[in-house]
């Protein structure tokens, strides 16, 4: 099955890291990514620019409106994602628990709907 792991961090915490802390954190991410590529779980993944760069788009009655910022204000912000393939939820949770941000923020694991070809 395929799962999307949505990574939520407190941006403030990440921003206030010292250079050496930040480098160590990124290093953990590189190592983790290499590990799940080797284990065959990795399908894709990206880190996102901070939440000030977010824009929310809506189309109502054919008219587009854009607003600054994410849909909801929360303490933790979506900061990146991994798209993985796993045997089952237990396997996916094992992988998610090793994402470095699981220790600082949280990781939401969502199974992907697999549509059948008509």
């Amino acid at each position: 099955m395929k799962y999307l792991c949505l990574i939520y961090d407190e941006e403030k915490k990440i921003e206030t890291m010292s250079k050496s802390e930040g480098d160590a954190f990124m290093g953990e991410y590189f190592a983790f990514t290499a590990d799940i590529k080797k284990s065959g779980h990795y399908l894709g993944g990206e880190a996102l620019q901070p939440v000030q760069t977010a824009t929310t788009v809506r189309v109502r009655n054919g008219k587009m409106s854009t607003t600054d910022g994410p849909f909801a204000e929360t303490k933790e912000q979506l900061g990146g994602f991994y798209f993985i393939t796993a045997r089952d939820l237990n396997d996916a949770l094992q992988v998610a628990s090793k994402i470095p941000s699981a220790r600082l923020g949280s990781v939401e694991v969502r199974p992907v709907v697999e549509f059948e070809q008509p």
């Binding site: 796993a86 089952d88 939820l89 237990n90 396997d91 996916a92 199974p111 709907v113």
Partner: peptide, 14 residues
């Protein structure tokens, strides 16, 4: 069913 919770006795570590 949808999240793929396996029908399993957990492994020793878990």
């Amino acid at each position: 069913r949808d999240a793929g919770i396996p029908y399993q006795v957990p492994a020793r570590v878990d």
